[in-house]
Simulated assay, not measured.
Amino acid sequence: MKQKVILITGAAGFIGSNLAKNILQKDSEVQVIGVDNLNDYYDVSLKEYRLKELENWDNFSFHKGNIADRSFLEQIFQKWEPEIVVNLAAQAGVRYSITNPDAYIESNILGFYNILECCRHSYDDGKPGVKHLVYASSSSIYGLNKEVPYRTEDKTDKPVSLYAATKKSNELLAHAYSKLYGIPCTGLRFFTVYGPCGRPDMAYFGFTNKMVKGEKIQLFNYGDMYRDFTYIDDIVKGVSAVMEKAPDANEDGVRVKVYNIGNHQPVSLKFFVETLENCLRKAGVIDSEAEKEFLPMQPGDVYQTYADVSELEKDFGFKPDTPLEVGLTAFAEWYAGYYRRK
């Protein structure tokens, strides 16, 4: 990626900020352009904290704006002419999509369409154009699939949430634009990402906030759920590897590829909470066991997620492997330090 211009949307987000930092630390010749609308879906101060960590690099430029705003996005593409685009901007959250569907249509459908259109027109007037579009999909698109581990070649036509449906639409749109306009596109199905300075709407962060306040935590499906928790550093390594190699044309002549990025070791919600409590106690965040409330399955949830990462390993020689206790220890220590300063 030497001397390339890389556009990262969702740059103030959990994955986007960590990816930008990783690229900047490794290569001073790359220009990283960050875009984010800094919405208030969760605590904006966390997003500002992440951006502050990127300010020290001269080859990082941040622009506040919404990818659903075509004119804003066109100005970014025209000014910077990115060669690699990593679209991580999206309205996240399964349960939030039930009560706030408009946000998902705006960001995940219209916003992604705008990204594709800008990539398409980056070739106008003989310009080099975007050499690779990498975009965030989600493990949620596997929906009602019963067979595990989830393989990228499995059918994904039974989503159980609007969020999942929008992510599936991203994969379909990317395929169509790659076929029509030759844009090389790679989709990444992330599996339950966690780590320091993560998203407060994720279970591990929400559990921690409640434990600190002495409130009971809610375990859905009575704690009988399994998730393929994937540490943020593994996600960043996977994204970075994929960015450097645009897909070759498949048997249909289309340059598209989709990968799972997951820890390929699902753990029960019960075990996860026990490990989290132990890590928080060691970090001095809590000093007693949390009170737990066991509830039925919530709309939009799935029983288990489990990633088959054989394609990722075959093509890039990499698979996530950070043990849960290592990742949660890092989160607990960050949480203790961050909230102690506030």
Rank of each mutant, 00 (worst) to 15 (best):
A136E: 04
Y123C: 00
L144T: 03
K79L: 15
H132T: 03
F62G: 02
N66L: 03
G93T: 10
F77C: 06
P128M: 07
E147F: 01
R95A: 11
E106D: 05
D157C: 13
Y142V: 06
K131L: 01
G143M: 01
Y49A: 01
E81Q: 12
D125E: 10
S139I: 01
V85D: 03
N59R: 13
C118M: 09
K47W: 02
D124F: 12
L144Q: 06
I67W: 03
G126H: 00
S139L: 00
N108A: 04
V86P: 00
F112D: 10
I105C: 07
G65Q: 08
G143T: 02
K155E: 14
P101L: 08
R151N: 13
L51M: 00
L110K: 10
K52N: 14
Q75M: 06
L73N: 08
H132Y: 03
V130R: 08
N59A: 10
C118V: 09
R95E: 14
V86A: 06
D102F: 15
Q91G: 11
T99E: 08
R70D: 02
N59D: 08
K131P: 00
F62W: 14
L116C: 09
V86D: 05
K127T: 11
K158D: 12
W57V: 14
N145Y: 02
Y142N: 01
N108V: 00
G126L: 06
Q75K: 12
N114M: 04
E83N: 07
R95C: 09
C118D: 12
E106H: 11
W57C: 10
F112Y: 09
I98H: 11
Y135G: 00
D124S: 09
I76T: 05
V85G: 04
V130N: 05
L54G: 03
L51D: 02
S137P: 04
S138Y: 00
R120K: 08
Q91P: 15
Y113F: 04
S140H: 00
R95Y: 13
I109K: 09
E147D: 14
E106W: 03
W57I: 13
A90F: 07
Q91D: 13
E106A: 08
F62L: 06
Y135S: 00
H132C: 07
K64I: 04
L110Q: 04
E81W: 09
L144F: 01
V148A: 02
V148C: 05
E81D: 11
A136W: 02
E117G: 15
V148Y: 04
R120T: 06
G93P: 09
V85Y: 02
I84G: 05
S122E: 08
